[in-house]
Amino acid sequence: MTAEAISQSRTGGDFWDGVRLSMPVVVASAPFAILFGAIAVDSGFSVLEAFLMSAMIYGGASQMVGIELFGQHVAPWLIVLSIFAVNFRHVLYSAGIGRRIAHWPLLQQALGYFILTDPQFAVAEARAVSGKPVGFVWYLGLGLPVYVFWVIESGLGAVFGKLIPDTHALGVDFLLPIYFLGLVLGFRKRPLWLPVVAASAAASIIAYKTVGSPWHVSIGAVAGVLLAVILPPHHSGIGERP
């Protein structure tokens, strides 16, 4: 075997290594993609718009937030701001993974950042920590199936959502709060979780009753974040690391 042939077969192996690791993510995200499509249509999106949102934003929680606010007829710029806020955590992933992929050609890096989701970061960072190289082909093998299935299933959910006769009986209108509660509880191991959630909940309810929707989102979020900033750093468990 020539060196080139070996390198090629290795490249193919890297791709399928990534695909194998992507499968649990594909399976776990499928119901949410379908749910997103169905709720998007229920909130007034067309099938094409639901499909486009998944293809262009590619961030489950933020898409759900966008749909929820769209359904409440919130001002467009506030919807975009809320999408930005929910996705803001990617800044940390980006800074982290940037150290691993800085040697890729620029276009590959640009594409790599586009598909940088929570699981993409988690799996790629775990590989880097274990001492293996994070190559573009492997990274694409990990991310591409998740992306393709996410977009197709969103479209299917949107088509299917139009066929649901009684959305109230199936609880479609209240599935998002349940989903968001699940996400909030998923963060419960983070430092300051309880005080942040309590502050955001209280502030958003007060704002909802006084100022009104949609300002309860921004006001509640700012209250929680400010509390985390104001509390002394030793409470947040940050800065104690060696």
Partner: peptide, 22 residues
């Protein structure tokens, strides 16, 4: 550290505001 604590708090803070009034 305070900025990092604030960044860490963003997702839970935003998502909570979508649950609490509901």
């Amino acid at each position: 550290p305070r900025v990092e604590a604030g960044l860490n708090a963003v997702p839970a803070a935003v998502l909570t505001t979508l649950v609490a009034p509901a």
